[in-house]
Write a protein that binds this DNA or RNA. Structure first.
Lengths: 233, 233
DNA sequence: CGCCTGATGTGACCTAAATCACGTTATGGG
DNA sequence: CCCATAACGTGATTTAGGTCACATCAGGCG
């Protein structure tokens, strides 16, 4: 099943991190990158494993998760087409801080560690592009920490819907089962179902099997922007 | 009250990130760094503010927190003597991803943004040292996410005790009030008190006012390392 | 030494959300 | 077309842990 065929230059330009790079750099990247396919549910790499490579999502969705000793799984984020993940070879991280799992049929482009090490010496611009990706990741994680720590499950679900909605269409949609949404948010299916049916009754979303349509995204917005004017003197 | 006197070279050598740097580099750092003092509870910088500088803890403790719109506060970590925090000028982060607050009387060394920008061009080694700090932060945050998402409050308290214990003495101690511990862990005082008195009954810790002594740290260890041999066939 | 304030102990109560336990609805393959 | 299976809907029950309401204890200080 594994398809190790090469990566086309046009395909690389679809990835935001590379969009502004000059042609020859992308060309040299394409030469060393590898295409990989994964089946739904398949693990791409595991937390704690030796790290190094960089992964780019060409098609499908990848879930980044932490699994703790007690068996519970906490989703950290969902990587869509164009996103980059993997332990950063720029730092000297030895191990993957989390696991990556294909959520559906997935195609990835891999930049192997060795290839990256070579590129980075003669290509500081590339390094800068990737550093930026990592600064976003730091921000994202600190946001996850905030959300997990102080939001209600309902708010977390709303936030997740807004974050991962596909906005290319007039009606933003999310192509996830309740089960998968639940694992991303860090809760269980029943709670997601209940909350979604509630939202549907309010006319905020429409539920179909494996797909949620946002009819009124704004209604999901305020996590709790309680207008706290009451600064009692 | 603000004491802007200069920073001594010996003091910088106390900071792990600089310990292995050659003498002249540390000398040039000392020339541009600034000393600052903060009172207990005082905010050092706020989430969302313009970022840039790097901060090093010379004495006291600094709490890194996220405050969400609903007013709840989630502690991310506690910085002890020698630790480094602040938004990384290496990335192009515009804003602080979190706030920093002095937990007690605190002395900091500040490396201002401008100074750092100059240093980094002629000192790649320094950059590398700091990148390493940031890779640790990424790991820490992903750990926080895991812990918040899937551990019980009791486990989180235990973990916090182990993480922030001062191991220089035979009996590790934590110098925090229950209130402050609670805000670090992301819970309320009562829960911390209850759990600590429970631990004291079991002989695992000793409680004094503003101080907790770990009598048997190992008892705090397993978050839930349930020996799950039962791979039922 | 008595008072005030901040740090603790502890019970009663209450809510969010996880669990359990089903029933119902899609949907694709034979 | 039928059935297995995955996805969804919904109630009843349970529980961790947050909230409230006090009572106690320790240290500083006039």
């Amino acid at each position: 099943m594994a398809d190790y065929s090469s990566v086309k230059i046009e395909e690389l330009y679809d990835i935001p991190a590379f969009r502004n790079l000059p042609d020859e750099q992308v060309r040299s990247l394409a030469a060393v990158m590898v295409r990989r396919n994964y089946a739904p549910g398949q693990m791409i790499f595991m937390e704690g494993e030796q790290a190094g490579s960089l992964w780019f999502v060409a098609a499908g969705q990848v879930k980044i998760i932490k699994q703790s000793l007690n068996g519970r799984i906490q989703g950290l984020c969902l990587m869509n087409r164009g996103k980059c993940f993997g332990s950063c070879p720029l730092f000297d991280m030895e191990k993957n801080p989390a696991s990556a799992q294909a959520l559906n049929q997935v195609t990835l482009f891999v930049l192997p560690d060795e290839a990256f090490q070579q590129l980075k010496t003669r290509d500081p611009q590339l390094v800068k592009a990737l550093l930026h990706v990592y600064s976003q990741r730091l921000e994202h994680l600190s946001r996850v920490s905030e959300v997990l720590g102080s939001w209600s499950v309902a708010d977390r679900i709303n936030d997740c819907l807004l974050t991962y909605a596909d906005r290319t269409e007039p009606q933003p949609t999310i192509e996830l089962t309740h089960e998968k949404l639940a694992s991303l948010v860090g809760t269980v299916r029943e709670v997601v179902t209940r909350h979604l049916t509630h939202l549907e009754k309010e006319g905020v979303v429409r539920n179909e099997v494996g797909r949620i349509t946002l009819l009124n995204p704004n209604a999901l917005l305020p996590p709790c922007a309680c207008p706290d004017e009451t600064t009692t003197p």
